[in-house]
Design a protein around this nucleic acid. Structure first.
Length: 607
RNA sequence: GCCUCCAUAGCUCAGCUGGAUAGAGCACCGGUUUUCUAAACCGUAGGUCACAGGUUCGAAUCCUGUUGGGGGUACCA
């Protein structure tokens, strides 16, 4: 866990109200002569149906006061009103002490803290974290599952960066293996020299096409063999195509020039295709690792483990680790023939990454079907005594399912990333033009806007759900643009920007603003906006963009309520009040912009 | 079999370090535009928080068990 490594001082803990805790502790000392731990004081926001902003739950205090909850609450309430200037009143409902905090406190918070230039900036913590994400295979184009991975990884990296880390984003590309050979073989046999240029197909889609061709032809062979009396399992092993693919893999490993050349050519097409998709998604990487370079790694680590007695060798020469004491199984770490398995190379790659960057933490954004693998991997590294092993974390996320179940590349039931992005952008265009909002936009502005909105809708849709939960995507139902969506937040931002420009807004936050009348919704907004830094830190700590997404939605929703119930601010004649309200608007826009950026979402100035 | 994750409104999701009468969006129904962008706002309706126990002043939240679903499970990655 990353907890403890966040440097977070400003407004830490509940809207800067630590002093309430301190004062309540004093009250308990004076009233009941008891020294109690801070954790006994349970602060929460007052529910809307009651008067006040901050509530102390008195039940835990009752055992020290030895009075009824009501008596205790009243006594503490009186004490606080007398001793603390900004506590302007209180009421007691059952065991809840609701405190009213003077407007001056909130206005002061708004003008001196929230509107300062460094609001929401967290000090660097001097720590380095690596985020590995995307990690595609080079035999097929990206689909919706990869999109979730990419957006999640990118956003978590952004969140950690904003929360004070130095972040290194890496992509570990699975560019070798039997699956790659399948595409290569099929292209060689049935491709007729087709290239991205000759076909007009995007490179990754072209290669993916041959991956599907392979599967089709392979299945035909299996059927034929089964018809000849073989069992299905036998047929799968004996089909000439699979044997040929295996031969090709051996040739690749032996460095066969022709095979390597083909591999280079086709992977090159795929990388060109991926680059386009990554660019559209707005994700990037500081470094790429390739399995063709790392698949032989890890054998040193195996030696090390044998020497340290962490691993043991069986009679056939295979190397194992016994994790039964930890409630897991025995796990193979090196085959009898001396070749690597998946975990062998991951051991080696983990070491390589650490040697490259010496990071304090390392996050693997990988689907939850690999939970067991990472549990074992991290455990092994710990047993090997790697000091950095405790900084490793598997950010496990749920699969994206269709109403029909799992997406399967070979069965063509995948939602293709490029298609989906194009559809989202197209929908954004249609909706926007129906609303007639872009009539005075240039073509370039339109293109940019539709991209931002379409991708904003997609990104928000995928990120607002808790990572570990599986996600249901129904292709027959388009992703919403209204309600709890990306475009709603984008719209709110654009609305504020338009308002500020109409009002020729300039930021001022002088002391005369400390005495304006504060409307109830304005107070709510100040409280909500003040929570941005802690929401950010919580999201980073939990590796959860969903926290940020849901927070931003609340901010946008509350702003729209405020906007609707407040008379036109641009025409407000009381200049002080006008400035005050515009300050809140501008702060809201800032928070929305900063927050959406961490989700990889762009907010437009107009829409 | 064993391990693991999930289960909240018709649908998609919040809420989970225990706190007041469980919240949003979509869909449905009704209302709001001579006022700064109606991708908005306001309202109606919708719940056995899968089920059963337990801990507690207090449980959607913690513990145990059951059911249902996803994933994994020793030479794929």
């Amino acid at each position: 866990m990353a907890s403890g490594s966040f440097s977070f001082t400003l407004y830490s803990l509940f809207l800067g109200m630590n002093f309430i805790i301190t004062e309540t502790l004093k009250a308990i000392k004076e009233l009941y002569n008891e020294e109690v731990a801070e954790s006994v004081i349970n602060l929460q926001e007052t529910r809307k149906e009651f008067e006040g902003q901050v509530t102390i739950v008195v039940f835990p205090i009752v055992r020290f006061s030895k009075q009824s909850p009501e008596e205790t609450a009243n006594a503490i309430g009186n004490y606080l009103v007398e001793r603390v200037a900004v506590v302007s009143g209180f009421n007691v409902v059952k065991g809840f002490l609701n405190l009213s905090i003077a407007d001056s406190y909130w206005l002061n918070l708004l003008n001196s803290d929230l509107l300062s230039a460094d609001f929401g900036q967290i000090k660097p913590n001097g720590k380095k974290v690596m985020v590995e994400y995307s990690s595609p295979n080079t035999n097929k184009p990206l689909h919706l599952g990869h999109v979730r991975n990419n957006l999640l990884g990118y956003s978590v990296a952004e969140l950690l960066g904003a929360a004070g880390y130095e972040v290194i984003k890496v992509n570990l590309v699975n560019d070798r293996g039997i699956h790659i050979c399948k595409s290569m073989l099929a292209w060689q046999k049935w491709g007729n020299g087709e290239t991205p240029e000759s076909s007009g197909l995007k490179g990754d889609h072209l290669v993916g096409k041959y991956y599907v061709v392979f599967d089709k032809e392979y299945k035909k062979e299996i059927e034929a063999l089964v018809a000849q009396g073989q069992t299905e399992d036998e047929a799968k092993k004996n089909a000439p195509l699979i044997k040929e693919a295996q031969q090709m893999l051996l040739a690749w490993e032996a460095g066969d020039e022709a095979v390597i050349a083909l591999w280079r050519k086709m992977n090159g097409w795929v990388y060109d295709g991926f680059a386009v998709t990554y660019q559209k998604l707005g994700v990037d990487f500081d470094k790429y690792y390739y399995e063709s370079n790392t698949y032989l790694l890890g054998k040193d680590t195996v030696e090390e483990g044998l020497a340290k007695g962490v691993f043991f060798k069986k009679e056939d020469g295979s190397v194992w680790i016994d994790l039964t004491a930890e409630g897991l199984d025995q796990k193979l770490v090196l085959r009898a023939d001396g070749t690597s398995v998946y975990i062998t190379q991951d051991l080696g790659t983990a070491q390589m990454k650490y040697d490259d960057f010496h990071m304090d933490e390392s996050i693997y954004v990988v689907g939850n079907e690999q939970d067991y693998h990472f549990k074992v991997l991290f455990l092994i590294l710990e047993k090997l005594g790697k000091s950095w092993a405790k900084g490793l974390h598997h950010l496990s996320y749920g699969m994206v399912d269709l109403p029909s179940g799992k997406m399967k590349s070979r069965e063509g039931t995948v939602v293709d990333a490029d298609d989906l992005i194009a559809e989202m952008v197209e929908t954004a265009r249609e909706k926007t033009e129906t609303l007639g909002k872009t009539n005075d936009f240039t073509d370039a502005e339109k293109t940019e806007l539709y991209n931002n909105i379409g991708l904003g809708a997609l990104k928000y849709f995928l990120l607002k759900v808790e990572p570990k939960k599986r996600l249901l995507f129904d292709p027959s139902e388009s992703i919403d643009f209204q309600g709890n969506t990306g475009p709603f937040i984008q719209y709110t931002h654009a609305r504020i920007k338009s308002l500020l420009s109409k009002a020729n807004y300039q930021l001022t936050a002088d002391s005369s603003l400390y005495s304006v009348d504060l409307a109830p919704t304005e107070l709510e907004m100040i409280m909500l906006l003040a929570k941005y830094p802690e929401e950010l830190v919580n999201a980073a700590k939990a590796y959860s963009p969903a926290f940020m997404a849901n927070y931003l939605y609340e901010v946008a929703k509350l702003f729209n309520k405020f906007y609707h119930e407040t008379p036109p601010i641009v025409r407000e004649e009381n200049q002080l009040l006008k400035q005050h309200r515009l300050n809140i608007c501008r702060l809201t826009a800032d928070v929305l912009k900063k927050g959406t950026q961490l989700l990889g979402i762009q907010v437009p100035e107009r829409m």
